[in-house]
């Protein structure tokens, strides 16, 4: 059995779906951020698979930018989580409805 690009894409899709499901069923803001990382990694895997198949380095360049944005997102997201949990210890995502319209 040869491993084609399709297998990598299926694995990427599985990681994306697992991450999205975790985002919906978990209420701990930290674990939700980790699930976002899972989704990003699933997409990264697809980008690299396409870069290989098309012989185009552009896909890997995009993954590089995704890494930078993910790092920035985690820094700001964890800053928010720390600020919220300091004010309201033990808060879950359901408790954070202060901005509800």
């Amino acid at each position: 059995m040869e491993i084609t690009t399709g297998w990598y894409l299926v694995l990427g899709a599985l990681l994306f779906v697992i991450g999205g499901t975790g985002l919906l069923i978990r209420r701990n803001p930290l674990v939700m951020l980790m699930c976002v990382e899972l989704m990003l990694n699933g997409v990264n895997l697809s980008f690299v698979a396409f870069a290989r198949q098309l012989g185009d380095i552009g896909g890997q360049t995009v993954v590089f930018f995704v890494l930078v944005v993910a790092a920035a997102e985690v820094v700001v997201g964890l800053g928010l989580v720390v600020a919220i949990l300091r004010r309201q210890p033990g808060a879950t995502a359901d408790d954070l409805s202060a901005l509800r319209g």
């Binding site: 399709g6 899709a13 599985l14 290989r52 198949q53 098309l54 185009d56 380095i57 552009g58």
Partner: peptide, 26 residues
């Protein structure tokens, strides 16, 4: 839903991706 959609799409569109080859290649 998303699993069916994504994996289904990948399986259905199972032809080699075509596109312009980059000059350098990976």
């Amino acid at each position: 839903g998303s699993l069916l959609l994504l994996v289904g799409l990948i399986v259905v569109v199972n032809e080699p991706v075509t596109g312009a080859e980059a000059m350098g290649g990976a």
